[in-house]
């Protein structure tokens, strides 16, 4: 029998206070904005849930949502298999392993807007090395062709974030005891079978984390499209975050932006929560089975 002692709540109090000021209060401010139409700091009108109806029926926002969602799916479809493939062929020990790790980690330590600026110049058809070279073979202009803009942003995200997947998977692979590979060799397993029956099951947890992180981050992508394409050409790379900042700090439509942020926030929150719940439930099922 555990003894219950409600005094323990006092120990949580400092955290609650800190979180209140850093997260809950700002969020409540946004919630406050979301129920008003604000023309100026002195001129405002309470309008209840109107912004929420407005936003859920706004084709502009719905299109941005579709863009963000399909971008995230494409990011996952490319980065997860690519990350696994690279992690599998990376050297396993010695100086080569260290060198490979450092090289892979470089994109992760570059400031995000530096990455944006670098690629923006690199991919330009007139003065960028990459853009110039690729235009020798095909027409590629991310400033005018919507598809090219999309591809460039996707490429930059792959370059920037696949390393995270690689590092996670690499760590996961290294933690598999060599006996598993030896047993597979003795059982005459092919390379495909080794991956399917030894590595993949052992990587499951690490991959779940990688998918969760990459989904959340790519769904909130902002800096790269902001710096490289500014949401264009046209609206090709106007993701939810870009649209939101346009409404909030471009048009200063604070009320509408507030409602938008709340929905955006809730969507990510719910998706992550569902993902996390499925993950832990599955794990718990496995543990109870083990007993």
């Amino acid at each position: 029998m555990k003894t219950r002692n409600n005094k323990a709540w006092f120990l949580v109090l400092p955290v609650i206070l800190t979180v209140s000021f850093t997260a809950i209060l700002p969020l409540m401010t946004v919630a406050n904005y979301a129920v008003q139409d604000i023309f100026s700091p002195t001129d405002r009108l309470f309008i209840g849930m109107d912004w929420f109806y407005n936003i859920t029926n706004d084709p502009l926002i719905f299109n941005a949502f579709k863009r963000s969602f399909s971008f995230s799916i494409q990011v996952l479809l490319i980065q997860i298999p690519l990350g696994i493939a690279i992690a599998r062929i990376m050297p396993k020990s010695g100086w080569k392993a260290s060198a490979a790790l450092v090289m892979v980690a470089i994109p992760l330590i570059i400031p995000w807007n530096v990455i944006g600026t670098t690629w923006q110049i690199f991919a330009r058809p007139d003065i960028g090395l990459g853009g110039y070279l690729i235009n020798k073979f095909i027409d590629f202009n991310y400033t005018s062709d919507p598809l090219d803009g999309w591809i460039l942003i996707l490429l930059v995200d792959v370059w920037h974030w696949t390393p995270l997947v690689i590092l996670l998977v690499y760590a996961g692979l290294r933690s598999i005891p060599p006996a598993y590979y030896q047993a597979a060799a003795i059982d005459g397993a092919s390379q495909v079978a080794v991956f399917r029956f030894v590595e993949l099951p052992k990587l499951k947890r690490v991959l779940m984390i990688a998918i969760l992180l990459r989904f959340m981050d790519s769904f909130m992508i902002y800096t790269e499209p902001f710096v490289i394409t500014g949401g264009g050409p046209g609206e090709a790379t106007t993701f939810l975050s870009i649209l939101l900042s346009n409404i909030a700090v471009g048009q200063f439509d604070i009320g509408r932006a507030g409602a938008f942020s709340l929905i955006y926030f809730l969507f990510i929150q719910i998706l992550s929560f569902l993902f996390f719940t499925v993950l832990t439930l599955q794990e718990r099922a496995e543990v109870t089975k083990a007993k």
Binding site: Q182, A183, A185, I186, G188, P201
Partner: peptide, 19 residues
């Protein structure tokens, strides 16, 4: 190689295919 020798080996701890 191991597969061609066709030997069987049992390791120190249970090595199993979880799935």
């Amino acid at each position: 190689d191991t597969a061609r020798r066709n030997v069987a080996q049992v390791f120190q701890f249970p090595v199993l295919y979880d799935t």
